[in-house]
Amino acid sequence: MCADPSTLSDALWFLCYLTTGKHLGFYASFGTVLLLLLVTAPAALLLGFGGAMLARSRVAPLSWIGKAYILLVRGIPDIVFFLFFVIALDQGFEYLRHRLLCPDWDQPVRQGNDFVVCDIAKLPLSSSPQWMHEVYGFFLAVLTFAIVFGAFAGNVLFGAMRAVPRGQMETAEAYGMTHRQAFWRVLVPQMWVYALPGLSNLWMVLIKASPLLFLLGVEDIVYWARDLGGSKTPQFTDFPHGDWRMWYFLFLLVFYLAFTRVSEIVLDRLMRRFTHGQAVAGGEAQRKAAMAGPA
């Protein structure tokens, strides 16, 4: 049916048009973006938590490492990370593999502008199928996103840990808990209520930063929207059309708005949970409401 679209009625034409291989790629890229967010958010949180723990360490060098990570990464413009750091990271991995796998290599790795490592040190190998290159690119993207957002999350968590009233920790110590026990049993469960507003901001920014994937060579929704929306002349496609980028980007706008709205609802629920039983204004309000209601 779709073999000769120029003879089709409008509805069928669109049915064929919206199911071309290119469009399927476009739909699949939504999955890529969602997967990136789902993987990156916990990874960044973990990095941030580690950074915050290091930064509050009583061992000075550890604390310097944590603070330096948070300070440096937060201070470096994102564009530097997404343009320069990824190529450097990739070359760093390949250089390490090169040293390990090809100890007999006698040529320099840097030859003028070229970065040359032995064939078996390439990451992924140039003989590996394209999907492995894509997975590797995706992995680099997740790592970069996690490092950048981890620093911000680290700062939020560092502040949240300090916001838990000192009395809570003192009480824990008075009960004979060790420092570690007090940290995990008293401080960590209570800090989320202070961290969540900052973290939810970060989540929103992360959602909106996902088009940066495109800079990293991952074919994301913006890449496809731009390509599909561009005007097409009849020689090169069965579905010629004018400049439709506005419609594609409008669709992206709706997607992002819907996605951030759903996130807001979920985050609100989370906030209510974390506030429950806490000695903060929100927790106090919950307590009063519960008391005023039918017992």
Binding site: K22, S127, D238
Partner: peptide, 26 residues
């Protein structure tokens, strides 16, 4: 390994008629 070496060719895929993505995304 050399005999079956894969040469990767980079292109823009947005410059018809030189290079572009066809309807199937190739």
């Amino acid at each position: 390994a050399l005999a079956q070496d894969v040469v990767r060719i980079g292109t823009e895929g947005a410059y018809p008629p030189y290079n572009f993505l066809d309807d199937s995304g190739e």
